[in-house]
């Protein structure tokens, strides 16, 4: 691997890891959300360097641009910037640290105890990343998973609407469109 590429990957990796840690330790919800946005964008750039612009920009547009904007919006709307210093589930920080150390040990053990040299992944053909190829793959080869994903998302949307409409009026008391301001179901 060329030195320049290595440096770029190292810097990006530091940004990705650093923003993830910043998201975890930040006690201000807005800052935590912004660290997560930075993380998503850095991962998007990583995809871009790996030669997958479609995934990269989709990642930035959907995760960093749409979902996190809603997070920030809700945090501001509720005025819930300050996170509690004490975590609601006691001891989970230590369990998390333990799991992290275990994972690091596992990765190190795999690296040093492996029996064969690391292999380069097989080169994928030129043009594989183009939207046309990605679209054909989704519609032709992976049609069923694609449809199932779409169906799951539809169910999620219906569920979200159902949850948001909990304060529908009690049956029989007023079903007109002005009933929305009426009694709430307890």
């Amino acid at each position: 691997m060329a030195l320049g590429t290595l440096i770029i990957f190292a810097v990006l990796g530091l940004v990705v890891a650093g923003s993830a840690i910043g998201m975890l330790v930040s006690r201000n919800a807005i800052y935590a959300a912004l660290f997560l946005v930075l993380n998503f964008i850095a991962v998007g750039v990583l995809y871009l360097i790996l030669g997958a612009p479609f995934i990269s920009f989709a990642q930035v547009a959907i995760y960093a641009g749409s979902i996190m904007v809603l997070f920030v919006f809700v945090i501001m709307l509720l005025g819930a910037e300050q996170l509690p210093v004490q975590e609601p589930l006691r001891g989970q920080r230590w369990i998390g640290l333990l799991a992290g150390v275990l994972f690091l040990l596992e990765a190190g053990a795999f690296f040093y105890l492996r029996t064969s040299a690391p292999q380069w992944a097989a080169e994928i053909g030129f043009g594989f990343e183009s939207p046309v190829v990605v679209g054909r793959m989704l519609i032709e080869k992976y049609l069923l998973p694609f449809e199932i994903t779409g169906f799951l998302l539809l169910i999620a949307v219906v569920g979200a609407i159902f949850l948001a409409r909990l304060d529908t009026p009690v049956r029989g008391k007023g079903l007109g469109r002005h009933a929305q301001t009426g009694e709430r179901k307890e």
């Binding site: 930035v60 547009a61 960093a64 641009g65």
Partner: peptide, 8 residues
């Protein structure tokens, strides 16, 4: 897609 990403 780039334009949409930057706009968002």
């Amino acid at each position: 897609l780039y334009i949409l990403a930057v706009a968002s």
